[in-house]
C-alpha cells in the first residue's frame, strides 16, 4: 500500500493523502463522497460543474482542482453546501432540456441521480428551453446537445485518453456549446468510435448509442441499483486498477 504524505480532515474525519493528490482524489480514496458531475478519475480535473465546492480552511474551493494540504480542515457534507449544490443542479436542469420522463438516459443519468441525492423535488427556476442542434449523423452515436451540461468530460476523454480531439467547447458563458472538430461540424464526419472513452463517459443523455435506449429494464439501471456515491467510488477504484473504459 502506498504511504500517505499527510492528513486532511473532511467533516472531522481524518483522511490520508499522497503528495499531489487533490481533495477529491484523497476523499474518494478514503471512501468519502464529495458530489461531482465533471470529475472523472484519471482525467485532468476542470472544475466546471462546481458541485464539488467545499470549504477548505474557511475558503470555498472546488475539491477536484484544489490540492490537499496537511492539516486542512474541510467542510463537505453540510446543509449550507448541499443547499448550494442543489441550486446548481436545478440550474443545470433548467439550462438544458432535461425531460427525465422521456429521456432514454433516465435511471442511468448522473444529473438525475444527483437531483435525487440532493433532495431536489422541483426545478424551481424558469426553464430556458434552449433550441440546440441534435446531431444524428454518426451511424452509431447520437449527439443531443439539448442535454449537454458542458462538463467537458467528452472533450478531455477524447483528448487525453482516445487521442482524437473529437469534441470541444465553443462560445462563452450562457452561449457556450459543444462542438465537433470536423470541417462539417458533424459527428458523422469524425472518427469517434463506440469503444472510445469519449463515447462512453457522458454523465447525461447528450452522447448516447443509437437504438439502445430502454434496453435496460426499470429496476436494473445503474441508479436503480446503486447510489450515486457508490458509483463514484466504483469509478475511482476502477481507475486505480488502470481500466478507464466503462
Amino acid at each position: 500500500m502506498t504511504e500517505t504524505t499527510g492528513t486532511i480532515f473532511i467533516d472531522g474525519k481524518a483522511v490520508g493523502f499522497m503528495q499531489g493528490q487533490t481533495i477529491m482524489d484523497a476523499a474518494l480514496s478514503a471512501q468519502v463522497y464529495i458530489p461531482h458531475l465533471c470529475h472523472y478519475p484519471g482525467l485532468t480535473p476542470s472544475g466546471n460543474c462546481r458541485l464539488c465546492v467545499v470549504e477548505a480552511d474557511g475558503r470555498r474551493a472546488a475539491a477536484c482542482t484544489t490540492a490537499a494540504k496537511a492539516g486542512q480542515q474541510i467542510s463537505n457534507n453540510t446543509a449550507e453546501l448541499n443547499a448550494a449544490r442543489k441550486v446548481i443542479t436545478q440550474m443545470l436542469f433548467v439550462e438544458g432540456n432535461h425531460i427525465c420522463p422521456s429521456c432514454e438516459k433516465s435511471g442511468n443519468c448522473k444529473l438525475q441521480a444527483m437531483g435525487y441525492h440532493l433532495g431536489m423535488l422541483e426545478e424551481h427556476y424558469p426553464q430556458f428551453n434552449p433550441r440546440r442542434v441534435l446531431d444524428a449523423s454518426h451511424p452509431d452515436i447520437l449527439l443531443d446537445r439539448g442535454r449537454c451540461i458542458l462538463c467537458g468530460l467528452c472533450v478531455r476523454a477524447s483528448h487525453e485518453v482516445d487521442k482524437k480531439n473529437v469534441f470541444a467547447i465553443a462560445g462563452r458563458g450562457a452561449d457556450a456549446y459543444l462542438i465537433v472538430n470536423t470541417v462539417s461540424g458533424k459527428l458523422g464526419d469524425s472518427n469517434l468510435d463506440v469503444t472510445d472513452l469519449a463515447a462512453n463517459i457522458c454523465p447525461v443523455g447528450a452522447i448516447m448509442f443509437k437504438e439502445r435506449g430502454y434496453v435496460t429494464p426499470i429496476g436494473e439501471r445503474i441508479y436503480d441499483r446503486q447510489h450515486i456515491s457508490d458509483v463514484a467510488m466504483h469509478e475511482h477504484v476502477t481507475e486505480q486498477k488502470g481500466d478507464k473504459k466503462r
Binding site: S102, E104, K210, E211, G213, Y214
Partner: peptide, 14 residues
Amino acid sequence: QGRPYWDVPFFVQR
C-alpha cells in the same frame, strides 16, 4: 419531430 425514433413509445405514452 426531431427526436430519434426509438424514443417515440416513451415520449408519446406521456
